[in-house]
Computed example of a mutant assay.
Amino acid sequence: MGSDAPYWHHRLPVDVTSLGFERLLWVVVAIALVGDVATTFAGLYLGLSESNPVARGAIDGYGLGGMLALKGFAVGVALLCRPLLPQVYRPIIPAGLALPWTVAVCINLYMISVVA
């Protein structure tokens, strides 16, 4: 079965390259990292507890420094793995950090709103 109808091509108002998209995702990573750390410690201050056992151990043992070291380790591993991928697939690396940290921020904000 075929169609002679013209194809619809939608173009974005700007030209997006994989490098530009990757840079945008690294900005999202930085914002999500700061948001996750800030909302985690705000929640802890309000009496909530950290549900991630690795993060809980880092916070219990070393406080903010432990949390930042944990996040720094994750970013470091991501940066080390980045050159292993072809350029077109490299946005997967920051997306793999940005997505769970953004979800964590949303969950933290919800939990804070329930307690506050």
Score class of each variant (00 low, 15 high):
Ser113Ile: 03
Met1Phe: 11
Gly35Asp: 05
Pro100Ala: 02
Gln87Ser: 11
Asn52Glu: 08
Pro91Val: 00
Leu97Phe: 06
Gly43Arg: 00
Val34Thr: 12
Ala38Thr: 11
Thr40Trp: 03
Gly76Gln: 01
Tyr89Asp: 15
Lys71Ala: 05
Leu97Gln: 00
Leu48Thr: 03
Met1Trp: 05
Leu84Pro: 06
Ala32Gln: 00
Ala116Glu: 11
Tyr7Thr: 13
Ala58His: 04
Tyr62Asn: 02
Leu80Trp: 13
Thr17Pro: 05
Cys81Ala: 14
Arg11Phe: 08
Gly20His: 10
Met111Gln: 12
Met1Lys: 12
Tyr62Gly: 12
Leu99Gln: 04
Trp8Asp: 07
Tyr7Glu: 12
Ser113Tyr: 13
Cys106His: 09
Pro53Gly: 08
Leu99Val: 13
Ile93Gln: 02
Asn108Asp: 15
Arg56Val: 00
Ser51Leu: 15
Ile93Val: 14
Ala55Tyr: 10
His9Arg: 14
Val37Ile: 13
Gly65Tyr: 12
Ala55Ser: 04
Asp4Gly: 14
Leu79Gln: 08
His9Ile: 15
Val27His: 10
Asp36Ile: 00
Val16Trp: 11
Gly96Thr: 08
Trp26Tyr: 08
Cys81Asp: 08
Gly61Arg: 09
Tyr62Ser: 11
Ala38Lys: 06
Tyr110Asn: 03
Arg90Gln: 09
Gly72Leu: 14
Leu19Ser: 15
Gly20Ser: 03
Val29Cys: 02
Tyr62Cys: 06
Val114Tyr: 04
Leu64Tyr: 14
Gly35Val: 04
Pro91Ile: 10
Asp60Gln: 10
Trp101Glu: 03
Pro6Ser: 08
Leu44Gly: 01
Val16Gly: 07
Gly20Arg: 02
Cys106Ala: 15
Ser49Asn: 10
Gly96Tyr: 01
Val28Cys: 08
Ile93Gly: 00
Val115Phe: 09
Gly63Arg: 04
Val34Asn: 03
Asn52Phe: 06
Val54Arg: 13
Ala42Val: 10
Trp26Ile: 01
Thr102His: 00
Val105Asn: 06
